[in-house]
Design a protein around this nucleic acid. Structure first.
Lengths: 252, 252
DNA sequence: TCGGGTGTTGCATCATGTGCAACGGGCATT
DNA sequence: AATGCCCGTTGCACATGATGCAACACCCGA
């Protein structure tokens, strides 16, 4: 809508892929170098972009600070975290937390199976929306027309033979998930990985987040993983209760 | 330099303080509502801003995804290398760079004392984790329970009489290192070799890598090597600054 | 039904961002 | 040293695109 800002913001994802020099930025934006320079300078003044020693541009520290604040404002995450860790201790597998925002499903927290060391590895990355259990849970809560619109617009990459093949199958799956209140991904993203997930609901009953447990089937079979379902649902419900309880405490 | 972009970007820190509606944004920016609307819409299209159900605007999760992607594509080694070379030129000794990954500490770069050329022979090899200065620095940054778990699982080979003998001593050493912000290895790996090291930190303050200077005590005594500590720390800090993209943001 | 509070749209004005062309500085090649 | 090339940078004339206004649409409470 605003051409100048639009161009400036387009620089950010571009730089997220790696450092670039002025010429590269200008070229990939399709504008004159001098224009790119002024945009970069403005971004720089706001600290969103950093100029490293070889004069190439990178995303700057301010962006990380903003991202931090953005994620802190998602208070579901804070509330959920201890529950996720607890669940991880009980079952030993990887636990994910995700939210839906602007046609994307994003992981916002993750507890690794073995040791809680390398935790933040993939957080922030968009989820395979057509197959992931958490994605199904979040989309299943939308209204029927919303679901249809989104389902039509998606691509259906065949990660494996069990990936959701098309919009029809996806909508059907969403209906099932909506009905039963939990979801699975049985080898739909990676052949050997299965997941079980459950929704976190706010005070009004709407799904605000979704969580799942993932495990490779060399460790546990799909059936065994399903026996964890009650535990997963109990955890999700515990988070929901705590979230609903505190969510009304609004501050100025 | 670019008024439009400048205004648009000023919205972000504003929203970082908490959600705001159109009127508030327009007022605090000092522009007409319609102008603020168009700016917000542009930010929205790029996912940097999210419109919650009460129509107020919030920072979007995309920011988080963006920052995450940038971090993953950041190459500490690339950034550090020139600094390591520079340090090597100043002190003449061997300089190492290491990271912690999967319960191991790995050298990822090395500048030799004599020949500043490639001696990649040992890069990629695991470090003597119980004695090396860089290993102490990297492990010292983990949480207390993590440190304990790891310390228990390690072997404590007695390379020399001054090697760390057991888990208790190691944990104690890590506490010291954590406290003082630098580390040494005085003949703990090879009788005649001493090292001084300092940590490289990311934007969030966590240690992402560690560097050290090593020299045989036939060339310099341990005390002489310690006089290099300020230089080593300054170099590590310079790398940290560049890695985290610290920049001076201008105020309105 | 009204009134005050939002967010939204179309439009005329001109401030602003734009591309051009010329400059300068670093670096490698000769 | 001298040369040429490749970047980043600057000043400027032009017109594009951002701006504020005023009117409209909507929701809620009175």
């Amino acid at each position: 809508m605003s051409q100048t800002v639009d161009r400036a913001l387009s620089i950010l994802p571009l730089l997220a892929q790696g450092p670039a020099d002025l010429g590269q930025v200008a070229e990939r934006l399709g504008v004159h170098k001098s224009t790119a320079l002024r945009l970069l300078r403005t971004l720089h003044e706001h600290g969103l972009v950093y100029r490293q020693e070889d004069q190439r541009y990178r995303l700057g520290a301010r962006l990380f600070a903003l991202a931090q604040e953005a994620v802190e404002n998602l208070d579901v995450r804070e509330i959920a975290h201890t529950h996720l860790v607890e669940l991880n201790e009980q079952c030993g597998h990887t636990v994910h937390l995700a939210v839906y925002e602007e046609n994307e499903v994003l992981y916002i927290d993750k507890v690794e199976s073995r040791y809680p060391v390398r935790m933040y590895s993939r957080i922030g990355k968009p989820v395979a929306i057509t197959v992931a259990a958490v994605a199904k849970l979040l989309l299943a809560d939308l209204t029927e027309p919303e679901r249809r619109v989104i389902a039509e617009r998606l691509d259906y990459p065949l990660y494996t033979s069990r990936s959701t093949p098309n919009a029809g199958a996806f909508l059907k799956e969403l209906a099932v998930v909506r009905e039963q209140g939990w979801a699975t991904d049985l080898g739909g993203h990676e052949e050997s990985i299965n997941c079980v997930g459950a929704p976190v609901r706010g005070a009004d009953g709407r799904v605000v987040a979704a969580m799942s447990v993932s495990a490779p089937n060399v460790v546990v079979t799909a059936e065994e993983l399903l026996t964890l379902l009650p535990l997963v649902r109990r955890t999700a419900d515990a988070i929901s209760r705590e979230y609903s309880g505190t969510t009304h405490a609004k501050k100025a």
